[in-house]
Amino acid sequence: MSDLDVLSYYLGIDVRQRKEALTLDQSVYASKLLERSGMAECKPCVTSMEERLKLTKVSTVARVDATLYQSIIGGLRYLVHTRPDITFVVGYVSRFMEDPLEDHWAMVKRLLRYVKETVDQGNVFPKTSGSGLQLTVFSDADMTGDIDRRQSTSGVLVFLRSAPILWLSLK
């Protein structure tokens, strides 16, 4: 076995190891995904999805190329590894991979415009000098948000950050 030096790139993920933090991002991969989808020169967008948007599998709008749709969704699913901000929207548009319609594709294009706006974002893991870690978890669910199957969508957000150790006395 040989030492290949410090990890800097792995499976499309750029790894930057500095004294103060470890950074993971997929900006090159995201740019290639935008090119592959024909959205490299699109106008950027600051939100990934319209508020309160509900899509259905039953519609009268035209169908789109399912192979292209599935390919782009697959690319977005891989991008989620370093972009947790798009996880919900990618999961939502993944529901329509079997038979994508124009309004589904419009939502994917909106998401790609958001990716264009935030292409340089990634995960930053600050290095700590040891005093302990604090775990914070948030969860939420929409009640029967899927109008086709009448099922709920839930999500979880987990933060693990350095925090002082608290000693409690239970006397």
Rank of each mutant, 00 (worst) to 15 (best):
residue 130 G to P: 08
residue 119 V to G: 02
residue 115 V to C: 07
residue 80 V to I: 15
residue 164 P to N: 07
residue 96 F to K: 02
residue 1 M to R: 04
residue 131 S to H: 15
residue 68 L to V: 08
residue 28 V to S: 11
residue 91 G to R: 14
residue 117 E to V: 01
residue 119 V to R: 10
residue 62 A to L: 06
residue 129 S to P: 11
residue 167 W to M: 07
residue 96 F to D: 02
residue 53 L to V: 10
residue 68 L to Y: 00
residue 120 D to R: 03
residue 146 D to E: 06
residue 111 L to H: 14
residue 12 G to V: 05
residue 104 H to W: 05
residue 91 G to C: 15
residue 2 S to E: 13
residue 17 Q to A: 06
residue 124 V to D: 01
residue 122 G to T: 00
residue 171 K to C: 07
residue 115 V to P: 14
residue 118 T to A: 08
residue 125 F to W: 07
residue 103 D to S: 06
residue 152 S to N: 02
residue 4 L to S: 12
residue 36 R to W: 10
residue 74 G to H: 02
residue 97 M to Q: 15
residue 167 W to A: 13
residue 23 T to D: 04
residue 127 K to F: 13
residue 41 E to Y: 03
residue 58 V to S: 09
residue 109 K to P: 05
residue 11 L to P: 08
residue 22 L to K: 08
residue 53 L to T: 05
residue 171 K to F: 04
residue 67 T to Y: 06
residue 98 E to I: 04
residue 21 A to R: 09
residue 136 T to L: 00
residue 96 F to V: 03
residue 68 L to T: 05
residue 48 S to Q: 13
residue 166 L to E: 14
residue 143 M to P: 03
residue 120 D to G: 12
residue 75 G to H: 11
residue 67 T to W: 09
residue 106 A to C: 07
residue 75 G to Q: 01
residue 148 D to Y: 07
residue 141 A to R: 02
residue 85 D to I: 13
residue 165 I to R: 12
residue 7 L to M: 07
residue 159 F to K: 09
residue 28 V to I: 13
residue 58 V to E: 14
residue 139 S to K: 00
residue 13 I to Q: 00
residue 27 S to I: 10
residue 100 P to E: 06
residue 126 P to S: 00
residue 74 G to Y: 13
residue 113 R to Q: 12
residue 131 S to M: 15
residue 162 S to T: 13
residue 40 A to G: 03
residue 19 K to E: 09
residue 3 D to W: 01
residue 165 I to Y: 09
residue 7 L to D: 05
residue 27 S to N: 13
residue 94 S to I: 10
residue 165 I to V: 13
residue 156 V to D: 00
residue 20 E to R: 08
residue 151 Q to D: 11
residue 10 Y to T: 03
residue 115 V to W: 00
residue 82 T to Q: 12
residue 56 T to D: 02
residue 90 V to D: 11
residue 29 Y to C: 09
residue 21 A to G: 07
residue 4 L to Y: 10
residue 50 E to V: 10
residue 36 R to G: 12
residue 119 V to E: 01
residue 154 S to H: 05
residue 25 D to Y: 00
residue 68 L to F: 06
residue 71 S to H: 10
residue 150 R to E: 13
residue 93 V to F: 04
residue 137 V to E: 11
residue 35 E to H: 14
residue 54 K to D: 00
residue 35 E to F: 03
residue 39 M to E: 00
residue 119 V to I: 15
residue 15 V to H: 06
